[in-house]
Nucleic acid binder design. Structure first.
Lengths: 114, 114
DNA sequence: TCTTAATATACTCAACAGAGCATATGCGTG
DNA sequence: CACGCATATGCTCTGTTGAGTATATTAAGA
């Protein structure tokens, strides 16, 4: 379960992370909002905690879980290398469209600039 | 194996994607550059192809594989919701630091503005 | 057409992850 | 201090996945 990528491969864990992005939540809140059995929630929270995605504080019998940014930022950093590729792709597409424009000048004005 | 997230959970697949970001490659090139057995490469390429991460064209006996942007963009879109959280986090940290500044004014000038 | 290079696929095996259920732990309250 | 709520953990079972090895497919070239 090493990598951050493996952690977010699990749909229910992604749901938990998405829920925590707005504010911290107790286990019971997560359980009710996501309609998951309590042991399932606790087990996924354990995985998330050990991987550094969340941290918890004790509030009487409750544990309040909240997001930590680092692991998701790591994923984001890996994705960065592909963003340049996407823009290059868009550029190539636009150059292609521009070439089409030259053959059909009537449509040129419908094209937006970057 | 449905989701894009599950696909990139595999380290070797991430390596292949990273390799393809610079240019398209044949199976043999991937095999040599990443030091993977050929069946391993082919199997991962199949998974990547069926999930829409790559596409291939035939060049004599070779197959040239290249990236397709959509699935990674989907991952990127999911991550977007957390970026606001990160900046909020940084803001909170900075407010905290600013409060510290008020108690130790001497250090204030070392703080950079946003 | 025989051969060789490039790639894909089939099959088996071992490891692991998630679900479900039962149960343990810990804290507050009467 | 006994009970109840909130949460964590243990255990078993099952499905899936990746590795490894062998083999099939397809095209090029002598």
């Amino acid at each position: 379960m090493e990598s951050a990528f493996a952690i977010i491969a699990e749909p229910k864990r992604r749901a938990i992370l998405s829920l925590l992005v707005s504010s911290q939540r107790s286990v019971g809140e997560i359980e009710r909002r996501l309609r998951m059995p309590q042991p399932t929630v606790s087990k996924h929270l354990r995985v998330l905690r050990e991987a550094g995605f969340v941290e918890s504080t004790v509030d009487a019998q409750r544990r309040l879980y909240r997001l930590k940014p680092e692991p998701l930022q790591e994923v984001d950093a890996w994705l960065a290398q592909f963003r340049r590729f996407w823009s290059a792709h868009v550029d190539a597409l636009e150059r292609h469209l521009d070439r089409m424009d030259q053959s059909t000048p009537m449509k040129r004005k419908t094209r937006r600039k970057r």
